[in-house]
């Protein structure tokens, strides 16, 4: 394990599997009556959220508390951080309070790297712009692995805004390392330059993209994409790329349906698909806590000494 978790780019399949394997232990803890471990006793973790994200923040906070860490939270929308109060000062100030680990969500690409470079703290990237969101991808992989133990050749179809999605980037980096067979599907305006060099299949036709897939991972579509002119309307997106049960019928018989949440029901996913028996959207949320516990454990300073 590296010093920080900034992104999955550069991770090997084995490194990822190691994290997933360890996450299992913590996942079992969550099913116990006493869900708390003393593992991070004496460790202070700061959750810095410069973008609103209730779910990810709660998931991290819960993971930290389950491991008995001391937790402080800082939330500010990037725009409300006043000029002159820059990111480095904010983090330095929090660091001066002797924080050991920092979980950061920020709208700027590279913000986690920036903190890792300039501040004395272990950094866990909880999303930096459209760059990476490694813990989300890891919990996606954990959830996939509960159903499909072997990633080699597993057909994964990712549907959504590849231009702006950090979840897609982290998923692509990790799934490629794990040997999965990945197809990206999005409107052509929401595919980034150079996507053909990512080593995944790209297909704007959702019927072709989803056919035979074992996993479909459906991304949330932001309303801003309409106002910025990338797509004509959410309605049209829903008609063409929204995942409904007819499309799910094209998948492999053995399949699961994923979504990182929060869902726009009726836009990128229909109600019946979201609530289908094959939907693992809620287990994703539970697994997220376990995976984040594993990451915290692996990165905690001198975790070996603290571990009992």
């Amino acid at each position: 394990m590296k010093e920080h978790l900034l992104g999955l780019e550069g991770y090997t399949g084995d490194e990822i599997l190691e994290i997933l394997e360890l996450s299992k232990t913590f996942r079992q803890v969550l099913d116990r009556d006493v869900k708390r471990l003393p593992t991070l006793k004496g460790i202070t973790v700061a959750n810095l959220f410069f973008e609103p994200s209730t779910r990810t923040r709660m998931s991290f906070e819960l993971a930290e508390k389950r491991l008995s860490a001391d937790v402080i939270n800082f939330s500010a929308s990037t725009s409300s951080v006043k000029k002159g109060e820059n990111l480095r000062d904010t983090v330095d100030n929090i660091g001066a309070m002797k924080v050991d680990m920092t979980v950061i969500r920020h709208g700027a690409v590279g913000s986690a790297q920036f903190i890792a470079k300039h501040c004395k703290t272990v950094v866990i990237n909880a999303g930096d712009g459209a760059h990476e969101h490694p813990t989300q991808a890891l919990l996606d992989f954990y959830t996939i692995r509960e159903h499909f133990p072997d990633f080699k050749g597993l057909k994964v179809c990712i549907v959504g805004d590849a231009l702006h999605s950090r979840v897609i980037r982290s998923n692509v980096f990790g799934l490629k390392a794990l040997g999965a067979d990945v197809t990206l599907c999005a409107p052509s305006t929401l595919l980034p330059m150079g996507v053909e060099s990512w080593g995944v299949k790209v297909n704007c036709d959702i019927e072709e993209a989803i056919r035979g897939a074992n996993v479909v991972n459906i991304m949330r579509l932001q309303l801003e994409r309409q106002t910025a002119g990338y797509i004509p309307s959410l309605r049209e997106y829903g008609i063409v790329w929204g995942i409904n049960s007819e499309l799910v019928d094209l998948m492999d018989k053995d399949h699961i349906i994923m979504h990182p949440g929060p869902m726009n029901r009726g836009v990128e996913i229909t109600q019946d698909v979201a609530d289908a028996p094959e939907s693992v959207i809620l287990p994703q949320v539970t697994n997220g806590v376990a995976v984040r516990m594993a990451i915290l454990y692996l990165l905690a300073p001198r975790s070996g000494d603290i571990h009992e």
């Binding site: 690409v109 590279g110 702006h164 980034p192 330059m193 990512w198």
Partner: peptide, 11 residues
Amino acid sequence: EGVASGLAGMQ
């Protein structure tokens, strides 16, 4: 805008 920005998710 190119391969590097696409991978990085940078506008």
